[in-house]
Nucleic acid binder design. Structure first.
Lengths: 192, 192
DNA sequence: GGGACATGTCATCAGTTGGTGACTTCTAGG
DNA sequence: CCTAGAAGTCACCAACTGATGACATGTCCC
């Protein structure tokens, strides 16, 4: 009768792989490792779940590959050093949490307690988060300062996840943003 | 032959209920809502899983009841105001994470991304964590300061969960503890 | 045009989960 | 002692999960 509204999926292994990877990234970020099923990801892409196991080997391997191609902390380390606190605090307290920027945090926070995902998260967050941050900070106590910064960033994300912002009004969110920015900048510039 | 080493469980509904509640609290704290099965809890107590559903109605109701009887933030609000930062920072950075003190945080952090547990956590963390903390802080911007404190506490716990401390040695942990204590105290005493 | 291979689907499996109703067993009160 | 009801168990269900091997289909090259 009518032609299909969405173009017929043309066979293309590379494109399908990428589509699976992106759908998986979104799912893992929004639902966490345990709560996303291969069938969910497959139906997002419009493909059979068996294909995912065939392409990636299994759910754990898929998760590992998602981590390696997820956005990392580099974005926040670009730009001037003095602006770091404001950039991060704005993202944490003001910007809508649907942004792609949050995906790495969300994946880590929502999947960290899953034993099958924990090892990959530990390894990846060390390589793609802590080590770059520590190197960027520099100085002898960089590891400790990186840890404090990480506490603030993860804690802020976790708080928003739990409370969905409904405890703070707009002006309070700006206050929170200022407080976070000042604290972040303090640990960027000074000694711990 | 030999008398049973552990005393034979004598039938006592109240004691069994309490035992289930405690086992459930430990399980939810260590594994999170989704990953703890009723059968796990039941076998910890030495009882059949069906009994849990019969006593509590279901897993969700059990979780709610666990939350209401879990230790809350009150413990940290006792004692002198100036010592708050050190008390909390020591717990966060130095003390072993197996302590009961962590259970509320662990339950929240490990179960927050589970839709069935989220509502209960949001409600309970508001009543048993934020509101007491906010009231204890006092002042006009208490809500914002409570949020910053909460970011630090949850973030520190989350970081330890992910990295199991293996990124920091003892002297770095003391530095981290100092930095956290100073920052916590800052938001306890001053305006945001 | 017609194989041949890559691409994707289907049916199905074993394991796990929360939940339910029928059953057994213990114990307190008469 | 002995029975009624509480306390606890058992067998089972339906739903879901990740995974696998057999099968179907599209596409490209000769």
């Amino acid at each position: 009768m009518s032609p299909p509204l969405s173009p017929v999926r043309t066979r293309n292994a590379a494109a399908t792989r990428t589509a699976i990877l992106e759908a998986a990234r979104r799912r893992f970020a929004h639902e966490g490792y345990d709560r996303t099923g291969l069938r969910d990801i497959a139906s997002d892409v419009g493909v059979d779940a068996a294909l995912i196991s065939r392409y990636f080997g299994g759910k754990e391997e898929l998760f590992e590959e998602v981590l390696t191609c997820a956005p990392n902390i580099a974005e926040f380390l670009e730009g001037d050093r003095a602006g770091f606190g404001d950039r991060v605090a704005t993202m944490m307290a003001i910007e809508p949490m649907r942004e792609e920027k949050f995906e790495l945090f969300l994946i880590m926070l929502r999947s960290a307690s899953s034993p099958k995902a924990a090892a990959a998260i530990r390894r990846h967050s060390s390589e793609a988060f802590f080590q770059p941050l520590e190197a960027w900070l520099g100085g002898e106590d960089a590891a400790v300062r990186a840890r404090v910064l990480s506490c603030l960033m993860m804690g802020a994300t976790m708080n928003r996840m739990i409370h969905e912002d409904y405890l703070l009004d707009d002006s309070q969110r700006r206050e929170l943003c200022d407080a976070l920015a000042r604290t972040l900048n303090h640990f960027v510039s000074s000694e711990a």
